[in-house]
Write a protein that binds this DNA or RNA. Sequence first.
DNA 1: CGTCTTTGACCGGCGC
DNA 2: GCGCCGGTCAAAGACG
Length: 172
Amino acid sequence: MEKYQILFHGDGSSTSSSSSSAAAAAAINSYSFNLAGGAHSSTHFQVNQAEVIGTDATDQNNMKLGKKQEDKKNKKIKKQKYAFQTRSQVDILDDGYRWRKYGQKTVKDNRFPRSYYRCTYKGCNVKKQIQRLSKDEQVVVTTYEGMHTHPIENPAQDYEQSLRLMQTYTPI
DNA sequence: CGTCTTTGACCGGCGC
DNA sequence: GCGCCGGTCAAAGACG
């Protein structure tokens, strides 16, 4: 369970966006840390891949000012998203936050539906999507959007961790 | 009784 | 404009 690996890709080519990409990378690190810290009762959990999608550049401020004010890159700045793939039997990956499911859609070219979750902490608008690859149904893709504005709340993590240890030390 | 799922409706973007 | 596609809303229900 100690072994996990994250590969960054896709962000190096998009030049600029220096600081924000660093923030995104930090966010990914924190997430991967939490995930690697356990909380899965499933056997094999491994982060294979992490990807930064888009960059965040205080777009709300820019929009509010209304001034073009260097719309820089003037591309539509999509919200900061980052995704990674995990190989797991179950798609409920408890990363220590409380999520409320608010939607599920079937996507084209994928026989598995995509689930939409939102963080239930008051004022915290972090969202995540979970979908499974039809190509390899062992792989679950988790896409996070935004950063949590509160510390992780995970009353069950210790329990899960100890449970995992029990499973490790007492193979039947 | 509060919390979280379920599920169709709804809506906006985009290609034709 | 129209219809597809992906994301969200919200009412109703499940569950502890």
